[in-house]
Design a protein around this nucleic acid. Structure first.
Lengths: 203, 203
DNA sequence: ACATTATGAAACGATACTGTTGCGTATCGA
DNA sequence: TCGATACGCAACAGTATCGTTTCATAATGT
């Protein structure tokens, strides 16, 4: 017998790495990013300090700052509400309402900003974020629209990707370019969905 | 006689400030921002070097880096094509086509990223950019839609701000979350406009 | 000519972060 | 108990930028 192997992988000798430290590091990074610190100015020192951890502990796990940020963003899972409501309209409103609610948090806004700006200089990061955080949402939205085209609530020839762009894009546009101070109307999701559905419904 | 006053303002004694230097500084700043340098990491030294100018010359004119960036972004005027085409549809397609064409330039994308991220930490900058670069576009788009509601091409009860959000938002969404590598279809503007107009046209 | 202000270049001390190293301690398997 | 590895902490030299200052020179008005 060499080692008691509960798992298939040989456990290396010595003290194992602390999962708590790892989590603290990622949380600290997300905290800082969520406060508006950009990726380039995000310093390992600040992360270590915030996490109550030595820099060594960080460098031992990630060689790049970008790798760390990628792992941090990948740990984010978007909240997707159950979308099996009475109608496509209800589901779309529910979906946009959650998106709008989320975008009222500083943290979400900052991280979205980072992700949207990342394509130019951190494509790996953007790609990963897209896969982890955006795609699941798009899939949920796509399923709702797909269902609509199948049960007759929506036009059968509706371009679903286009419909998604219209719904999500309108929401994004309003939350981005409406002054940020200017309070968005509480029924914005309903307004968007109702306007969009005019074109989505069968003749 | 105190001074030859071609203008109403008294010209101060001594060597006048070089307009060429001022322009070079702003151009250098825009260049760097357009290459993906973010505001926080944009260094005065880099600007001075790029502009072929002493740091003194910069500090003499702007006390903040933010002030400089604000002036730099304010010097940008968006290209707005003449929108008096045969139909509302044509004008909308023309408009979105220009937007799409612009967004294929690294420089435009980077500066848009900065502007969109600026609300959180540089609200003055965002506000200024909105007034200088966004509002004129919105006004042009609004005029087209307004005309449509008046001449019967569009529903008379169309919510114009919402329609703008749908059109611009759909375009923004597609250019932002489509992988950046994935080439957007050449007729994307037509697709967006045609889908949107389904709901905008009178019953 | 002379006063005045701006210019580009260079150097300054101060601050912050980098990535690495050494230290003493803690936690694991054998 | 012992070897091995991770931990938090502190210090290191190296680099970059900050905002300021000094300098010789250039450009303007009187």
């Amino acid at each position: 017998m060499t080692t008691q192997q509960t798992e298939g992988v040989a456990r290396p000798a010595g003290r194992p790495r602390s999962e708590k430290a790892e989590k603290a590091i990622i949380d600290a990074a997300l905290d800082l990013l969520g406060e508006g610190i950009g990726v380039p100015e995000l310093s390992i020192e600040a992360i270590a300090a915030r996490a109550g951890v030595g820099k060594t502990t960080i460098y031992r796990r990630w060689s790049n700052k970008e790798d760390l940020v990628v792992d941090a963003l990948a740990s984010l899972k978007p909240p997707i509400p159950p979308l099996h409501g009475a109608s496509v309209r209800d589901d779309l409103v529910t979906y946009l309402r959650v998106v709008g609610e989320e975008s009222r948090h500083m943290r979400t806004r900052c991280i979205m900003n980072i992700a949207m700006s990342a394509w130019e200089r951190h494509p790996r990061l953007a790609e990963r974020f897209q896969a982890i955080a955006i795609e699941p949402r798009k899939a949920a939205l796509r399923a709702v629209l797909q269902r609509g085209t199948e049960n007759g609530e929506l036009r059968s020839d509706l371009d679903i990707e286009m419909a998604m762009a219209i719904l999500s894009g309108a929401m994004l546009w309003r939350t981005k370019w409406s002054g940020e101070n200017a309070q968005l109307p509480g029924d914005l999701p309903e307004q968007i969905v109702d306007e969009a559905l005019r074109g989505f419904r069968p003749r």
